[in-house]
């Protein structure tokens, strides 16, 4: 579906995307994981054919975006990072007008709009203007809008950023349904739970480069341990405790507010910590996540 080779985007002297190689296959859900400024959105804009690559090659649906932008975009659905709904129109009109931009017939978009309103659970709000809708509703409308042309490939840039947990789960449910119906999903996110929930395969980006690639499980297996033990101490600086913990875990990360001990058995490690006479304020043993993978790969947390 997407084939990028040494794909590069520069803005003046700043390199936003630095020679990345990406291969996305039909029917899969593919994720770009990384912090803000990693180059995810620039990559998405190039794939969406609204930002010409500075260097490298890019083919989407077997076509060249430089020559066949309109033809490619006709088969894409795009959910931008910020909702760009048309606030001068009603909810239904947003879908109707957007469908017309694809050259679809009026009768077709009318039927399609009803179907999508149902899908986005917005049927009751069909004739409301956009402005008073909640963040979750607007996001669902943006996703519904991106589906008006029955896209083969759906690009989602930070689909759930800024939504409350319940709204996120509703959205994830909708995206699962799309995937089941055969739509290829490409999404960016800086939430590791989202990436784990939704993506079959993902790349981790940092500073415009791809630093790792694989399924969430593969990445965790390769770059982290099975479990993580989180310790909080009654101190402003956690670094001195790290030295007292040597030998208890495969790796220790010091964060401003806590220590992370990478281990295959969190409970056993917790017991070992207690035996050394240390008394943390709180102890939490949990599974490794992509956050840990990212921390290991870049030395930074995703959301900071």
């Amino acid at each position: 579906m997407i084939s990028a080779h040494r794909l590069t985007k520069r803005f003046g002297g700043f390199t936003a995307v630095d020679a990345i190689d990406v291969e996305v296959r039909r029917g899969e859900a593919f994720g770009f994981l990384g912090p803000n400024g990693a180059g995810k959105s620039s990559t998405m804009r190039m794939i969406g054919c609204v930002s010409p690559p500075t260097d490298g090659s890019l083919r989407i649906l077997g076509l060249d975006p430089a020559k066949d932008g309109p033809a490619i975009r006709a088969r894409l659905g795009v959910v931008p990072q910020r909702d760009t709904l048309d606030e001068e129109l009603t909810v239904r009109e947003n879908l109707l007008v957007y469908g017309r931009y694809f050259g679809l017939s009026r009768a077709h978009v009318r039927a399609k709009a009803d179907e999508l309103l149902e899908f986005a659970q917005l049927t009751e709000r069909a004739n409301s203007v956009v402005e008073p809708l909640s963040g979750g509703m607007k996001r669902r409308l943006t996703i519904a809008r991106s589906l008006v042309n029955d896209p083969e490939l759906l690009l989602l840039d930070e689909p759930t950023t800024g939504l409350d947990p319940q709204a996120r789960h509703v959205l994830w449910d909708r995206l699962f349904r799309l995937k089941r119906s055969g739509v290829t999903l490409v999404l960016t996110t800086h939430y590791m739970d989202e990436a784990e929930q939704l993506c079959d395969r993902l790349v981790v980006m940092d500073g415009g480069r791809i630093v790792a690639e694989g399924s969430p499980r593969e990445l965790i297996a390769l770059h982290s341990t099975r479990e993580v033990l989180e310790l909080r101490f009654a101190a402003d600086d956690h670094a001195p405790y790290a030295t007292k913990l040597t030998g208890l875990a495969q790796r220790v990360e010091v964060l401003p507010d806590r220590l992370l001990l990478y281990t295959d058995d969190g409970d056993a490690t917790a017991a070992a910590v207690a035996r050394r006479g240390l008394e943390p304020l709180s102890v939490l043993a949990r599974r490794s996540t992509l956050e840990d993978v990212f921390l290991h790969l870049t030395g930074r947390t995703l959301v900071d």
Partner: peptide
Amino acid sequence: YAKLYDSVLATPLG
């Protein structure tokens, strides 16, 4: 402000 064309250019329109 409305960023209207950001969404328009994601469609076949140029």
